[in-house]
């Protein structure tokens, strides 16, 4: 995903001289592609994220479209106040890029687990929060963010994610992408979980359950319309994210609760407890149910609950089953 991002950014920078890239001393073997081609618009600020973000705000004030780049939590947490006050408050053209969202740096330990980032970022004013699922989404969203004036947060995976979308898939600002349609439940996926969700979808179909699968690359603005349509058409909503509380599950719950629509709903996400053991991204995800099996089991029990709830009462006609 990061390769797709940097390739796309270079292609855009070729056309648009306002595009700058700054980093906090990270990006080895990735950012050289930009630095070599556009040295006058590249800047390694050093291990100094507050200054990186402030400098980016200054460059944006001078008319630039500035990408800040670092890994996991580094480009957002130390410099959160710079993002809030300098960038978002002033609605500046700064795009914050974090590589290794979620548990991509699994074995590096909790300092490197970006699992609260979307909750924090989605609370900020004017900020677009995007988490692409695959290289196709990453390329398209990089372009969308350049076209969209104002601040954005782009949460990327690391490297080597497979292409999941067919050629010509339509990626639109603030819109969900329907990856497969079905009527038994809807699985909403954000970021790099989509591959696992698609595999779970195949398993479910083999068992006679037909899920609608929506990739939700934008947390803000959220495609509430697609969420509500899914709720009314399928009656069961499962959200899947490599993130803790305050992310897609929370946002979707708010949309559903505010609308008054009756639906079964479950957010599949990470627990609040910091992970203190080493493990690959796959292992750490699976330990919290973010695996093909975990998604399948959760989906089945959610569908079973709803069918039991909707079944006509038997043996106790006097009881109000509702």
């Amino acid at each position: 995903m990061r390769t797709a991002f940097i390739e796309q950014l270079c292609a855009l920078a070729e056309q648009d001289e306002r595009i700058w890239l700054t980093c906090g001393d990270l990006g080895y073997s990735v950012l050289e592609a930009f630095a070599d081609r556009f040295p006058a618009r590249y800047l390694n600020v050093g291990v100094a994220e507050q200054n990186m973000t402030g400098v980016a705000a200054g460059l944006a004030l001078a008319g630039k479209t500035v990408f800040t780049y670092s890994i996991a939590n580094f480009p957002i947490m130390r410099c959160l106040e710079q993002i809030r006050n300098d960038v978002c408050y002033h609605n500046l053209n700064v795009k914050i890029v974090a590589v290794g969202g979620g548990l991509a740096y699994g074995s590096h330990g909790y300092t490197h687990h970006a699992v609260e980032d979307m909750a924090i970022m989605s609370a900020l004013p004017n900020l677009i929060v995007a988490a692409p699922a695959d290289p196709v989404e990453a390329r398209a969203i990089t372009t969308i963010l350049v076209q969209h004036p104002g601040p954005a947060y782009l949460r990327l995976g690391k490297a080597g994610e497979p292409v999941l979308h067919a050629d010509g898939v339509k990626v639109e600002f603030g819109k969900a992408i329907c990856v497969c349609d079905g009527g038994d439940l809807t699985i909403l996926s954000i970021g790099g979980m989509l591959g696992t969700v698609l595999k779970a979808g195949e398993d479910l179909r083999r068992q006679g359950i037909h899920p609608r699968i929506l990739s939700m690359p934008f947390l803000t603005p959220l495609d509430s319309e697609s969420v509500l349509r899914a709720a009314s058409e399928t009656g069961v909503i499962l959200t899947v994210e490599e993130h803790g509380y305050g992310g897609l599950g929370t946002a979707v719950a708010e949309v559903l609760a505010s609308s008054g629509v009756t639906t079964a709903f479950l957010p599949l996400r990470l627990a609040r407890t910091p992970i203190k053991i080493a493990g690959s991204q796959e292992q750490l995800r699976s330990a919290q149910g973010l695996s093909t099996e975990g998604i399948v089991q959760t989906a089945i029990s959610l569908c079973r609950n709803i069918s039991q709830r909707n079944a006509p009462p038997q043996n106790s006609p006097q009881m109000d089953t509702r």
């Binding site: 618009r41 800047l43 402030g54 400098v55 705000a57 200054g58 460059l59 001078a62 300098d86």
Partner: peptide
Amino acid sequence: VEFSSGSLGHALPVGCGVALAAKR
């Protein structure tokens, strides 16, 4: 007014960014 301030320690990095753009 070029920029909002209130929380301390924000303007110098921003001033650096503006200066760098002019310099380059």
